[in-house]
């Protein structure tokens, strides 16, 4: 059974060769490769994570932008609405004011007309008084001539006054 009997010389050389290989590879070979692979893996992982974060941030910013836009839109609508309401209010006020003014003018005019009317009436009254005084003077001039004639005269005067007035 030569095949199953380990040869001492070969054992010695195998120990030596495998020992040296093991030492060299465990010292200078595999740890560097393993570390590099590990580091690269971590780097890729962290990069992916960062990329994910950045993407999320971008989404967030986009969302924010959209919100800002929406707010601006809403504000615009509000401003437009406000303006229209203001306009309407102002227009209404103006109309009211105009109406009021018109009413005031009419009132004034009416008052003036009244005042003029009154003045005219006062004038007329004064006139009448003057006429009455004049009539009375004339009547007084023909005093005591005739009662009948006085009445006649008074009637005539009044008639005259009537005519005159008309």
């Amino acid at each position: 059974m030569g095949l199953l009997q380990p040869e001492s010389g070969l054992l010695f050389w195998m120990c030596l060769a495998f020992g040296v290989v093991l030492f060299l590879l465990c010292k200078f070979g595999f740890p560097i490769i393993l570390r590099s692979i590990e580091e690269r893996k971590e780097y890729i992982d962290s990069s992916l994570e960062e990329a994910g974060k950045a993407r999320q941030e971008t989404m967030h910013l986009k969302e924010q932008g959209r919100q800002v836009m929406e707010e601006a839109q809403a504000q615009r609508w509000k401003i437009l609405e406000d303006t229209r309401a203001e306009q309407e209010k102002v227009a209404g006020e103006m109309r009211q004011k105009a109406q009021q003014e018109a009413a005031a003018i009419i009132e004034n005019a009416r008052a003036e007309a009244q005042a003029q009317k009154e003045a005219i009436l006062r004038q007329a009254n004064e006139h009448i008084v003057t006429l009455a005084v004049a009539v009375a003077q004339k009547m007084l001039r023909q005093q005591l001539q005739d009662t009948k004639a006085q009445a006649e005269l008074a009637g005539r005067i009044l008639k005259e006054m009537d005519d005159k007035q008309n």
């Binding site: 010389g9 060299l24 200078f28 070979g29 490769i33």
Partner: peptide, 29 residues
């Protein structure tokens, strides 16, 4: 008997190949 027999010689050649293979790759890193 510590002779460098055919198997030992082959073993040394192959060991050198293994070391060169891996250290060659490690040098890149």
């Amino acid at each position: 008997d510590f002779s460098i027999t055919k198997t030992v010689a082959g073993l040394l050649v192959n060991s050198a190949i293994v070391v060169l293979m891996i250290l060659g790759a490690a040098r890149y890193y």
